[in-house]
Design a protein around this nucleic acid. Structure first.
Lengths: 208, 208
DNA sequence: CCGCCTATCCTGTAAAAACAGGATTTTTTG
DNA sequence: CAAAAAATCCTGTTTTTACAGGATAGGCGG
């Protein structure tokens, strides 16, 4: 029997916080440390106290859970993080895992699944929500893999910047951006930026 | 003082059910009747017992909350329905309202907001979540009015057709399409088609 | 009936994107 | 480490957009 695991949650949805709290409050081997509703206050909390496990929503008002995950893991490598989201967006899940998350559960998880996830993750294993694991292969098949730079360029293209403007912004030659754009069109199999942006939105490769 | 209002919830997310339950369980003027996790079992429940107010998620596994709302209101006109969703999708909100819902709250609503919503709706008034209401006018105010033809052209641009291709498809001159494109850029205040498509998606002017 | 809006069409120029077909240098990773 | 992947840069040409500044005809409502 291990000592009570300290749990913290970051989610901007009050009902989700209450939901998890309610589900876990009578578990004597778990200690509820509280919650944060944005990345900022989460980091502030961590400066003083350290939970062993954090449930972290992917959509936060001030910063994506993916970035927050990375930051938290850099500063506090020993903390376990379980991603939390309504949908099973494979791209988000894998990016969360790349950034050091130990697991991922959907918000429609049952109490049993939550407890199982906590148990496994606290033992150093990976837990992926059943449904999340299911769609894992499905999504990855039709959503092409973009590199970090390509995503960056894609984002700027969608913001309406021209090749030259993007080049200036990223301190590289315009031809480089041109190549990236070319590769983006090929990867997403579209003829021009208009279709590119639409496709990217559809595949949720584009924030905002 | 009215008698305890009977409340029911339909949502496929366990955490949301628990969240609302937890938030409302100590309210003595409310009676928690239980929950359903899909449209089917919601309808089954209603055949035997009748709540006065139903919190209804927009995304259900077997049927959209919008359709379920319509069906429930047809069979049991006296029941009040409050829509429930993670995002403030204006199109969904309005369709929910058209189908007889009396209100709409986001899942990040606070306890106070929930109670206020219940109170207002039970008195026959409409309650729209603050953020939902916010985006309601924002959407309608800063979303420019496009003509039928402009929408048509916009759609084709987003599909990746060039000006010439669109002209051929619509049996008009290329310069006509050029003018439409120009007007679209002006109306949405964007510098090029990439930004145009993104903005159009954001303002929900584009289907698909 | 007379604006206003919509849809259509025009000329011309400059800028940007798309297409082709490379090459080199980092960075990542097995 | 060595291969693979990613990021960088290049020279061209052709096509498409973006921008400027128009015009004309039909419909609809005050």
């Amino acid at each position: 029997m291990m000592t009570a695991a300290k749990i913290f949650i970051v989610d901007d949805h009050y009902m989700v916080i209450e939901g998890i709290h309610s589900l876990l409050q009578h578990e004597t081997h778990l200690e509820w440390m509280g919650h944060a509703m944005n990345a900022e206050s989460c980091l502030a909390f961590l400066r003083n106290r350290q939970p062993e496990l954090i449930f972290m929503d992917i959509n936060l008002p001030d910063k994506s859970g993916i970035d927050l995950c990375k930051e938290v893991k850099q500063k506090y490598p020993s903390v376990f993080i379980i991603g939390l989201s309504t949908f099973n967006q494979q791209s988000f899940i894998s990016r969360m895992m790349e950034n050091g998350a130990s697991g991922y559960v959907l918000k429609n998880a049952s109490k049993d699944e939550l407890l199982l996830a906590i148990q496994m993750v606290m033992r150093g294993r990976i837990y992926l929500s059943h449904e999340a694991a299911m769609t894992a292969d499905k999504k990855s098949s039709d959503a092409p893999v973009l590199t970090r730079r390509e995503k960056e360029v894609l984002e700027l293209i969608a913001d309406g910047l021209t090749t030259q403007e993007i080049a200036d912004k990223l301190f590289v030659s315009a031809t480089t951006i041109d190549t990236h754009r070319k590769n983006l069109l090929t990867k997403l199999d579209v003829p021009n930026v208009a279709a590119l942006v639409k496709m990217a939105m559809k595949l949720q490769l584009l924030g905002n």
